[in-house]
Amino acid sequence: MDLYDIIFYLFALLTLVSAYFVVTNKNIVHSAFFLLFTLFGIAGLYVLLGADFLAVVQIMVYVGGILILLLFGVMITNKITNVSIKTGTIHIIPAAIVIGLFAGALASIMVKTQWQTESAKIPFTTSYALGKSLITEYVLIFEILGILLLIALIGAASIARREEKE
């Protein structure tokens, strides 16, 4: 196990443990703060994969933008901060069986499969290549994502709006 592996497992552990606390914590503000570590851990994994642009975007958009918005939203609507969220577990035995099978299958697959691999290169900056393929090969996907965002905006506004009395 070399240094690279150790760093990888550290980031993976950070992501998993904080994600566990996001889900189980009863206080929504605490959950939001744990989400910070989850998102940060994922950004670390991106760096290790040589995806520098993605890592920066992850920190800027998720940690810097969305999470701060989430916290503001929670703090401004002070009713939510006092609500303790119901985090009970039901049907624990069937769930455990299904998840156990799933995890077992997943683990054996991850170990045994011969994955398509590519030898590690010295990482270059990826933003140029990423930008280029987004507007050439993947331009259709790029445009459809644009429409997807428009639809998401319209939908969110429509759901959030209070019904006007006539």
């Binding site: 459809i144 994502l145 429409i147 997807l148 319209i154």
Partner: peptide, 30 residues
């Protein structure tokens, strides 16, 4: 929103790339 749905479906029925399939499916679902 209906137009968004139709656009998602129209792309979905022609898509032969898994990424495009996923994006079209998301547009339709959303």
């Amino acid at each position: 929103l209906m137009y968004g749905m139709v656009l998602g479906m129209m792309v979905l029925v022609s898509a032969v790339d898994l990424i495009l399939i996923y994006v079209a499916l998301e547009l339709l679902s959303l």
